[in-house]
């Protein structure tokens, strides 16, 4: 009898154990989005590969143009054939299905916003999720008289020579300043003369 009780205990414990594992497996939800790149490989690729395009390359067919600005900006004016996916909604179910489809069909996707700076963060996120068919449009979108104007811009260009500017400003300022220091020197020369007067007075003592 004692042995039977022991086996009962063991079997009850094991059944409970298996139940816990089964429940855990059933409760496990596969996350909707998984990274396919870790940070180091992403960094390596974004510093070596070219993922920028300009306006002339837009004419290719097989390209899907995506506007990451808000719907408000999109309605005000957008590039031809663009699809509006607002950046904060980029991971929605419908949008990620859309991206998956584009990836399957081998379409190349071009993202654009008011400036390339606006696009870089959504791009980085999508890249790390494994959408590698994406490029960034290096253009600035502005409006003039209700029309959209798009202009190519260079990325991360060093526009100004700051050291040169500072040196020049010092030069310019010092040229004008030169005559004045000479005026300053003259009153100093008066002082030693006065000191000589002190000496004879002390000699009187």
């Amino acid at each position: 009898m004692k042995e039977l009780e022991k086996t009962k205990r063991i079997s009850i414990a094991s059944v409970l154990f298996i139940l816990v594992i089964l429940i855990a497996l059933l409760a496990y939800k596969r996350p909707k989005h998984l990274y396919s790149e870790n940070t180091k490989s992403t960094l390596e690729k974004i510093t070596t590969e070219n993922y920028f395009t300009n306006l002339t390359e837009l004419k290719d067919t097989n390209v899907v143009l995506i506007d990451v600005r808000s719907q408000f900006d999109f309605e005000k004016g957008h590039l031809e054939n663009a699809v509006n996916i607002y950046a904060p909604e980029i991971l929605n179910d419908t949008n990620s299905k859309f991206f998956d489809e584009l990836k399957k069909n081998n379409n190349s996707v071009i993202l654009y916003g008011n400036t390339p700076n606006e696009v870089i963060a959504p791009y980085m996120l999508l890249y790390q999720l494994g959408y590698k068919n994406i490029k960034i449009l290096t253009a600035e979108i502005t409006y003039s008289k209700n029309k959209v104007i798009s202009k190519d811009v260079e990325i991360e260009k060093s526009k100004y020579d700051i050291n040169g500017f500072i040196q020049e400003s010092i030069k310019k300022a010092s040229i004008k300043a030169k005559p004045k220091p000479e005026v300053v020197k003259t009153p100093k020369k008066i002082i030693p003369i006065k000191k000589k007067k002190k000496l004879p007075v002390e000699g009187g003592c």
């Binding site: 596969r30 989005h33 998984l34 990274y35 870790n38 950046a87 963060a121 996120l125």
Partner: peptide, 21 residues
């Protein structure tokens, strides 16, 4: 059969998106 977690380092993508925005 579970997805590989070695590449899934750091915070999850949804959180990263909200930080990025």
């Amino acid at each position: 059969l579970l997805p590989k977690y070695e590449k899934h380092e750091g915070i999850n993508p949804e959180e990263l998106l909200s930080n990025v925005i």
